[in-house]
Design a protein around this nucleic acid. Structure first.
Lengths: 115, 115
DNA sequence: AGGTTATTCAACCAAATGGGTGAACATTCG
DNA sequence: CGAATGTTCACCCATTTGGTTGAATAACCT
C-alpha cells in the first residue's frame, strides 16, 4: 500500500475534524446515535445543504457512515479512523523520545570523558 | 475561559497538522531537533517563503517555537498542543462508550420484561 | 561602508472551502 | 396520480489557502 494514500487519508481525517461545525456534528452523532440529515441540520443555524455538505466531508473521511432507508438517510458516527490519528501522534512522540534518549547517551559519554 | 477560544485553538492545531508538508516539517524537527528555516526549506521542492509560511502556521498552533539568534531563526518542535487533540478524541470515545452502556442497560431491561 | 546571508513582508494568483439558493430526484402519503 | 418530504446536485459567491516572486529588514563578514 502506498504511503502517499495513507498520508492523504490522514490529511482527509484531520481536515474533516479541523472544522468546528463538523466536530460538533460528530459529537452529536456519538452521543445520540444515528440521526437523519434533517434532524442534524435542525440543530444548526445553517442551511440544510451546508450541513449535508459537512456530512459528506465526514463521510469521505470515514468518520461517518450512511444507511439509506427509503428517502431517509441515517447518519452514524464511526470512530475507527481516529486510530490513524492516534498512531501518527504516537509515532511522533516515540521519535521524539528516541532522540532525547540518544541525546542523553551522548551527554553521558561526554561526562565519561570529562571524569 | 471561553469554550470558543478552546474550540478555536483545537481547530488551529488540527488544521496545522492536516497538511502533509507541515506534518513532514514537524516530523523532521522532532527527529533531528531544532533547525534553521533555510535548513528546513532545503529539504522541500518548494520556495523558502512557502516553507516559512508553513512554519508560521505551526508556530501559531504552538506546535513549534522559535529562538532568534542573530539573523538565524532556530525552529524547534513542541508536542504539548497534541494533548488537546488527544483529549478531544478521548472525550469523544468516552461519550461513545457511555451511550453504548446505556444502550446495553436498556436492552437488558427489555430482556427482563420478556422473561 | 559594502556585500553577502537569513528571514520576513507584501502583493499576486489559482484552487479549495464554507456558505447560500433553487432545481432535481426519490420516496411516501392522501 | 398529485402533493409533500428528505436529500442531493448544480451554481454562485466571498474568504482562505498554498504557492509564487520581488522587495525590505536584519545581522554577519570582510
Amino acid at each position: 500500500m502506498g504511503e502517499h494514500s495513507q498520508e492523504h487519508r490522514l490529511s482527509e481525517i484531520l481536515k474533516a475534524v479541523s472544522d468546528q461545525t463538523r466536530r460538533s456534528l460528530l459529537t452529536t452523532l456519538v452521543q445520540e446515535g444515528p440521526l437523519r440529515v434533517t434532524e442534524l441540520a435542525g440543530r444548526y443555524d445553517m442551511s440544510l445543504n451546508a450541513v449535508s455538505k459537512h456530512i459528506k466531508v465526514l463521510e469521505a473521511a470515514g468518520l461517518v457512515t450512511r444507511k439509506t432507508l427509503g428517502r431517509v438517510h441515517l447518519i452514524e458516527a464511526d470512530l475507527d479512523p481516529v486510530h490513524a490519528v492516534d498512531d501518527w501522534f504516537g509515532q511522533l512522540r516515540s521519535i521524539w523520545e528516541l532522540r532525547l534518549e540518544r541525546l542523553g547517551e551522548l551527554l553521558e559519554e561526554g561526562n565519561d570523558r570529562d571524569e
